[in-house]
Design a protein around this nucleic acid. Sequence first.
DNA 1: ATCGCCGTCCACCGACCGGTGGACCCCCGC
DNA 2: GCGGGGGTCCACCGGTCGGTGGACGGCGAT
Lengths: 219, 219
Amino acid sequence: MTSVTPSPVPAATLRLLVVDDHPVVRMGLVAMLSEHEDFEVVGEAADGAEAVLLAERLTPDVVLMDLRMPVLDGAAATARLRSRADGPAVLVLTTYDTDADIVRAVEAGANGYLLKDSPREVLADAIRRAARGETVLAPPVVARLASRMRAPAGPSLTDRETDVLRCVARGLSNAAVGRELHIGEATVKTHLLRAFEKLGVADRTAAVTAALRAGIIEL
Amino acid sequence: MTSVTPSPVPAATLRLLVVDDHPVVRMGLVAMLSEHEDFEVVGEAADGAEAVLLAERLTPDVVLMDLRMPVLDGAAATARLRSRADGPAVLVLTTYDTDADIVRAVEAGANGYLLKDSPREVLADAIRRAARGETVLAPPVVARLASRMRAPAGPSLTDRETDVLRCVARGLSNAAVGRELHIGEATVKTHLLRAFEKLGVADRTAAVTAALRAGIIEL
DNA sequence: ATCGCCGTCCACCGACCGGTGGACCCCCGC
DNA sequence: GCGGGGGTCCACCGGTCGGTGGACGGCGAT
């Protein structure tokens, strides 16, 4: 950062690590990035664990990270990379713009969140800004985060309420849920009623779809 | 296949059309395919409608088609391309291996179904075989189709049963569904019971998640 | 230390749901 | 023409669910 550095930062080439489980996507990124002189792809990883290992060895400036990956999730990998002070910037690049995905990535410390349908120049610009420490979010992502803010009725369910809802989604009756979780049926109903209230619904089925939509439970 | 053919098929270069709404994926495919001498990417399209137009003008041998796309869906585009006798072979190349996606693509007449995490050589081989008119499915896809065959309880719901289930997923009561669809509550219950039977579940909530999983209804 | 939230539990009621066993019509195929 | 499947409707019963009102012990915060 000081003038002591041999090659001045603005002209320095950015060392990139590409992380995606799809070979096609990795090739596309490498092809796309190699058209810019100030980028150099120093490595590729096919899952989160590999990404963490390679990042340690290669010390890239920016990591382009997919979210849905085998072995180690993109969000988890991001958290590990960002937990170190001298870690690389992480730019999440994914197909999905689910609320839950975005929030998990941002909470994990991602410096940016772009969608894979981003045009080439947007991507290049985002990488340069992420390298400078800026946070860059795609417009649709910003919109989602904003709408989430606007709705202070942020459906934040208790651990237990979520457990119960997960069982209900499997089609278990209240009594069966009680047996499964080792609690009384009355308790199940209490949790469920509170969940209804928070989700703004009136019956168990709507609660499940609402929770699914909100990313609180998975299918 | 006979010696009468002027230019022997095996040595001819295959003209390809790449269809995907993500620029990154298109670049990746082009980069990956250009490494093979017998492939020539003659065009790229970002959605199904564009794909149909370009296929008419460029008359490619094989179309590499994504499924989830704006404007015109990949399955619909495939159906249009395959409806003509002299149309190109269509190789579906997608991230998703949902039952519903696979079935729709195959029913639309796709010559193959590959996942985007396929290694390069598998993809190249699949393209050559699709050009010869063979049908090539990725192993996980085959497995899914097979398991679907094995279960003769193929969850094929009636139009009406699906309508009812969609309403139930929204949290409507049986009576409310009846009002919504202009039918009696008794009828709603009948459809629902039949749907339970077909889906192998015992209550409305499990039916909704099962239908979601099977791709019968959307969230 | 007191307040509030979470988690647990109980009893009771009315409403709705799951399930049975019918019934009728229409359309398509054999 | 007759069977069969989809769609519509009805009545009835028992069980479960939705909802109320209350209770108690932790635990973190003020």
